[in-house]
Amino acid sequence: MKFQLLRLDKPVDFMRFRLPALIFSTLLIFASVASLAVNQLNWGLDFTGGTEIQVAYPDGANLTQVRTDLADANFPEAIVQNFGSSQDVLIRIAPRDDLPKDEIGGMVVEALSAKNATVLVQSISFVGPSIGEELTEQGGLAMLVALICILLYVAMRFEYRFALGSVSALLHDVLITLGMFSIFKLEFDLTVLAALLAVIGYSLNDTIVVSDRIRENFRKIRKGTPLEIVNISLTQTLNRTIITSLTTILVLVALFYKGGELIHGFATALLFGVFIGTYSSVYIASAVALALGVSKEDLIPEEVEKEGEDLESI
């Protein structure tokens, strides 16, 4: 028995939904930007600075008790929550001016073990405020440099219209993923930043495959408007697009459910990014290249002899 997701003999008219897709994307981007402006991001410890202590109570943790203990020890503002299991507790304390910032972790551990000797320290993280600021800057810079490098590479390998198309698709993906983190108030830490760059990589992968096919078809198919050729190319690559998304989603689901609490944000960002990236490589990258007026003439190689060879092999 042979499996095939879709048997498409006729090209699907993807580009017919160009306008609705454009409106949809614009709405999403507006919502993201609005949420980023109003709610901002729920920055994690890596960016805000502060102290995070993960402890385990083998007999089960009593969060209320932990909170009272901490309040008694002069940390009434500590955020206490379960982390992964009912035994694990995550305690967060923002930087304070009245205490040496880097010693808060030790103080908290001391206070907790004085109240309950069974407590196990799993991890202590302290990040100074200056580090956080630098990271934010570096992260933004990394994003920007990545986009510029990719723009240059694609412009060199393909054409500037494709380059602009793929970079706008990437910007679209990054903005909307950020927006989702802002809207749902998910914690944005270093691993999420890494995931975001991986989303760029993934979405680009998709875009390149589609662009590559469009270029090939422009050269191969003599008749047909650019719109038709884009549709044909999208149809031809659709199976591949879906299958790769599927295998990637499979591993990401494994990561989400099995990878533990620390990787949750990473898996979430990527899972969402894979969906949005797949969508954008169809509707944003190709549509932008089309809108910018990509045409047969731009992609046909200049050497006449080579064309002849092409014809013969067909």
């Binding site: 570096q138 990394a142 440099v145 990545a146 490098c149 990719i150 590479y153 270093l190 991986a198 680009l204």
Partner: peptide, 14 residues
């Protein structure tokens, strides 16, 4: 190659 570029930038900055 394009994904690799993203990886290299991550490595350089991160």
């Amino acid at each position: 190659i394009t994904t690799f570029i993203a990886g290299m930038i991550l490595f350089a900055v991160g």
